[in-house]
Amino acid sequence: MTSQAPGLWPPSGPEVVFLLLGAVAVGTALLVVTTRQLVHAALWLVVCFGALAGGYLVLTAEFVAWVQVLIYVGAVVVLLLFGIMLTRAPIGPSAGLDSGNRWAAALVAVATAAVLVTVVVTGFRTAYAPLHPGQGAAEPLGASVFRIWVLPFEALSVLLLAALIGAIVLSRTDIRGRE
């Protein structure tokens, strides 16, 4: 796997693309957690997820990329927007989106980043993965899911059902908890 690994610099073509997409993802993620407008945060999240989907494509995981676009961009963000709407959040810039915990949070986050980056760079400096397109296509993935991972898949469907019911119960005001 690391036999004929080329050097880190200069990056190859896919790597350049991935780095650009990664930069977009990180940048938009930063915007998500720093913006002063709720709706903008949700929209920047779309961009971030999109960039990540692009990254998955570069990594030859095309099925995951499409699922990412479908579920995250299509469903999750829409749900979040609904949430923003239903909680009557203000449209436009609002001041109080950050709590007083902000500086401690920044400190912890930077420390986390430092530790993680240090560790992964130390650990995977020489790791190289040659890319073979078609590896993550729908067919091999589907075969894998329904042959090998079918039991977790079914369990997951039950989980989804439970989540569905739970969400309904939680959102309906006419179902009271047992006092």
Binding site: S99, N101, A104, A105, V108, A111, V115, T118, V119
Partner: peptide, 22 residues
């Protein structure tokens, strides 16, 4: 009662432990 504060402490401790481990 601020759960965020609790989580902050939790993660800070976690990072410290990780640093110590490394």
């Amino acid at each position: 009662g601020n759960a965020q504060l609790y989580v902050t402490g939790l993660l800070a401790g976690l990072v410290l432990i990780a640093v110590a481990a490394v």
